[in-house]
Design a binder for these strands. Structure first.
Lengths: 184, 184
DNA sequence: CGCTAGATTCACAAACTTGTGAAGTTAAGA
DNA sequence: TCTTAACTTCACAAGTTTGTGAATCTAGCG
């Protein structure tokens, strides 16, 4: 077996690094599990959440199935299932390592932005259901009017989302420009 | 048993009403189940979602445990559990019907607004975990920097949320004023 | 063109979740 | 103060989800 894949993130307890920092695997694992738990609370499947958090906390941002399995103490089958979901929702991408039959999974840097943008679709579906509801209940009935108000709120949210994401892009670009300046 | 509680929403198939609308119970139930399913997809417990959707679709906006049980075909125990959750998260309020030992459960008109405002707390918790993560990973490590960027995004979101809710309040008040005008 | 590392699929068992009936508790009204 | 309608709690059964090992598939490489 090749030793290549050990270069990015070691599994030893701690590791000195060029800037004088040590990576405390115990602390890292605690972060991974804690953050994954919060993603689960927010509705994500457990294993997908753990895999995602693990990738997020890796220095390279890229890990193989075997590495994920070792860090999370799960079988290749579990990793496979998690990756299937995560790539479906575009939170990780799959890369084939050239000159190898081993896949590498990478976190997208814009995951959160993308995830939020995808909420747009969810809102649209909700709005569809609410519109049907207004019809079923009768738009002049008290219940119909109540559902209608909810619909207005979601429509408002959806509009706001557009502006919000635009402002985020500007905010991010401004930040990056500052970082570039500082580096010079 | 008193017949009082039948006054607000009948269980018969359809009902003529003063404005000439009929309430098609089959269609209403379909809306309730469909909307509840979407709430479940978004992470809510099944029974809580059904109870909430049912209240939302009732003309009075107020139902008793027995009415909820009959409409959703579930036991009083199930209703009790759902209501416990919903009142914990402030999506329904409990009222004691005066001169009776029967509770009534009411949907809040501002549920969605409130629910979104509560997201604020969730974000704060996430930010806490992310901050710990940056420390664990070392703020100058690539992973630490990646988590840090995520943290910035969530901080941005939290700021935006404040403005968004403020704009919603204005939007809503403007709408209500227009409705008042039209009624005159 | 076959061998084999690695990914995927699948049936199953363990763990968790959900809703029920029954027992227990509370408080309105006589 | 007693009775009893209505809510709540609890143990359990049914249903669902999750992760595993084993079998299967895929595609680099000799």
């Amino acid at each position: 077996m090749s030793e290549q894949h050990r270069s990015a993130d070691r599994t030893a307890e701690t590791r000195p690094d060029p800037t004088g920092h040590a990576r405390d695997d115990e602390a890292v694992s605690q972060f991974v599990e804690r953050f994954a738990a919060q993603l689960v609370d927010a509705g994500m499947q457990r294993m997908s959440a753990r895999v995602f958090a693990c990738l997020l906390a890796s220095d390279s941002g890229v890990l193989t199935s075997a590495e994920l399995g070792e860090r999370l103490q799960v079988s290749p089958a579990a990793v496979s299932g998690a990756i299937r979901y995560l790539s479906q929702v575009d939170m990780v991408s799959r890369e084939r390592e050239p000159g190898s039959r081993r896949d590498r999974y990478r976190v997208h840097s814009d995951q959160w932005y993308e995830a939020l943008a995808r909420r747009d679709n969810v809102l649209t579906r909700w709005e569809g259901t609410l519109r049907e509801g207004v019809v079923s209940l009768g738009e002049d009935s008290p219940a119909g009017r109540r559902i209608g108000e909810t619909l207005v709120f979601f429509e408002f949210l959806q509009t706001e989302l557009t502006g919000l994401l635009q402002r985020w892009r500007e905010h991010r670009d401004r930040m990056r420009a500052e970082l570039e300046d500082a580096a010079r």
